[in-house]
Amino acid sequence: MLTLDRHVGIHPEVVSTELGDGETALLHLKTKTYFSLNGTGARIWWGLQRGLSLKEISQLLQSEFVVDSERADRSVVELVDDLLRQQIVQAL
């Protein structure tokens, strides 16, 4: 079970591109799987790129969006869990 004190790293075979409209495109070079992240997802990705813990990323969301802590935590965990399953990120 993924917890908020975890750190995860971006898989070295993933390329990401900020699209300037809040969206981020991801591509795993090995699996050739594409992902598109919306504004919230892109912000979570930004935190992952900088090595923040999931808790720190949740706090970042709470400071930037009108969202309570429970929902922010859930957003981070659900997305990162999905990215882990797709090997876009990996546990450190």
Binding site: L19, E23, A25, L27
Partner: peptide, 14 residues
């Protein structure tokens, strides 16, 4: 190589 695949990802998403 990664520049090309990055470009491809932008095209797919858009």
């Amino acid at each position: 190589y990664r520049q090309v695949l990055r470009a491809a990802s932008v095209c797919v998403v858009k």
